[in-house]
């Protein structure tokens, strides 16, 4: 058959050449691509197809997979915020769930979402039910409970995509503390947040303070002592505040002087509560005045004690 005259032979030839060329190149670059892709891939979370497919039509799934998940998730989240402004509970919640299903990577979707569920939506629901004054207290409590639980469940799912991120337990702890008034659980999660990587120092202090609220002074004291040892000399760590708490607890527990934490360099004179009943026999650089272990600054410190955030 005359090759030049047969259009199908020609087309087939072109096609075969193109496919072969692409295959060949694919083979040649495959070591390079395997190496680079292996690395890029390890940095990307798995796409949660099941969740998305339930919520969306097929078309969007394809668009999503097409690499536009970030921008689509952003758009959906913006939509959710539009409904948030209109205080439309169902749509807000649905769209927040959709957002994180599309792109679970950005933490602020999770945080913002759980806050809306735990803090904003109960108010809307009570208002819908007739307002703060008319709805019976028991019903209000129930709504608060329910929504707080939703917020917790929601942020719990973030843990799957961000294992070890301190913001997940921190957020949970805050909801337990502020909304469910479950000090026990709140303390547990504050501690977990502290132990997570990059966990902020203040979470440990909150944990100990919650122990104190639960009248577990000794436990709190022991924890503070250990914390004081662990903490680096970083202004962020607020060691003086920890020391202050230790001194408070020593007083509360009436710890014998010998078992108390020895005087610390740079320990500040803390006005207000220790001056009156100082342990006997402790000397100060100024003479016989009884002062707590530690130094007194030669001049009075004008500043209020730092870090009394809770």
């Amino acid at each position: 058959m005359d090759f030049k005259r047969n259009i199908w032979l020609q087309r087939a030839y072109t096609f075969v050449v193109c496919v072969c060329a692409l295959l060949l190149i694919g083979l040649i670059v495959s070591p390079l691509q395997r190496k680079a892709w292996g690395e890029v891939r390890s940095l990307q979370p798995e796409l949660n197809l099941k969740e998305v497919e339930g919520a969306l039509g097929q078309g969007l799934v394809i668009g999503l997979l097409g690499g536009f998940r970030t921008i689509i998730a952003d758009m959906v989240f913006i939509r959710a915020n539009v409904y948030w402004e209109k205080k439309d509970r169902e749509k807000t919640e649905a769209l927040i769930n959709l957002t994180t299903a599309i792109d679970p990577r950005p933490m602020f979707f999770w945080l913002n979402g759980s806050r809306i569920m735990a803090y904003d939506i109960p108010i809307w629901r009570i208002r819908e039910a007739g307002g703060l004054d008319d709805v019976p207290k028991s019903v209000q409590d129930e709504i608060y409970q329910e929504q707080a639980q939703r917020g917790i469940d929601f942020i719990d799912r973030a843990g799957k995509y961000h294992p070890g991120d301190y913001r997940v337990p921190l957020e949970k702890a805050q909801i337990y503390n502020n909304k469910l008034k479950d000090t026990e659980k709140a303390a547990e999660y504050f501690l977990q947040a502290y132990h997570s990587e990059d966990g902020p120092y203040y979470t440990a202090r909150i944990y100990a303070e919650l122990l104190r609220q639960m009248n577990r002074q000794q436990e709190a004291y022991d924890f503070y002592r250990q914390l004081y040892n662990e903490l680096p000399d970083d202004p962020q760590a607020n060691k003086p505040v920890v020391l202050e708490r230790i001194r408070e607890l020593e007083d509360e527990l009436n710890t014998p002087a010998m078992q108390r934490l020895p005087a610390q360099p740079g320990e500040r004179y803390l006005p207000g509560y220790m001056q009156e009943d100082l342990p006997i026999g402790v000397k100060t650089p100024f003479g016989d005045t009884q002062v707590p272990p530690g130094e007194i600054y030669p001049y009075p410190e004008p500043a209020a004690p730092a870090g009394h955030s809770h």
Binding site: L23, Q33, W37
Partner: peptide, 16 residues
Amino acid sequence: GLSLLFPNFQMFNVGD
């Protein structure tokens, strides 16, 4: 074969 035929565009997703 298919994975060899087409370039992998996800490789470029390194913005984060």
